[in-house]
């Protein structure tokens, strides 16, 4: 069995580029992702294991120096994204009651960047993504066009749009269409 070829990871949006004047659309790098479910009372123990403070405020996120990102999705639900280490490994030793499910391949993400980034994402999303209501660091599950997405504002002019794998073609198309009018 030594000669088994190791399967390679093929991201659904591999090789796609897009955008328009004012905005660039780039598939995010492959990442490890975990859906973490736990009573928020146990956030402390989980935070310690993960190396960052689990956000407990709606619509917020946290990020550590190693690039690990955690978004609050619900009162007992977090999305952990890490392009390097695997958060599951860190969670194995946690004794506090929780559910950690690998969703690395369930989701994929599109980075939307440029001065037209906000308008591009806003075009399909009914939530208010303005600076006042959705400042840098905000994260939310919501809808974009006809699909569900998680939107994270990673910088003033940069958004990360996470969606399920099979919806990524639609998401990329929708953002490409929205990008055309992002400087309106």
């Amino acid at each position: 069995m030594a000669d088994i070829a190791h399967a390679t990871r093929i991201e659904p949006l591999a090789g796609r580029i897009g955008g328009a004047a004012g905005v660039a659309l780039t598939p995010a790098a492959p990442a490890n992702r975990v859906s973490l479910r736990a009573d928020p009372a146990d956030a402390k123990a989980l935070s310690k294991a993960l190396g960052l403070d689990l956000p407990v405020t709606p619509k917020s996120s946290a990020r550590n120096d190693h690039g690990r990102l955690v978004a609050w999705l619900g009162p007992d639900e977090w999305l952990i994204i890490d392009e390097n280490a695997d958060p599951l490994t860190d969670l194995v030793k946690v004794t506090a009651l929780h559910s950690a499910v690998d969703i690395s391949h369930r989701n994929t993400a599109i980075l939307v960047s440029g001065k037209g980034a906000r308008a591009t994402v806003q075009s399909g999303c009914p939530q208010n993504l303005s600076d006042k209501v959705f400042p840098v660091g905000s994260a939310t599950r919501t809808v974009m066009g006809k699909i569900e997405v998680v939107i994270l504002r990673t910088a003033e002019n940069e958004f990360r749009v996470e969606c399920w794998r099979s919806f990524s073609d639609y998401a990329f198309g929708m953002l490409s269409e929205s990008a055309k009018d992002c400087l309106a």
């Binding site: 999705l73 009162p75 639900e77 599950r141 919501t142 809808v143």
Partner: peptide
């Protein structure tokens, strides 16, 4: 249900 939000 806030199905496409916090899911509660």
């Amino acid at each position: 249900r806030h199905i496409h939000g916090c899911a509660r």
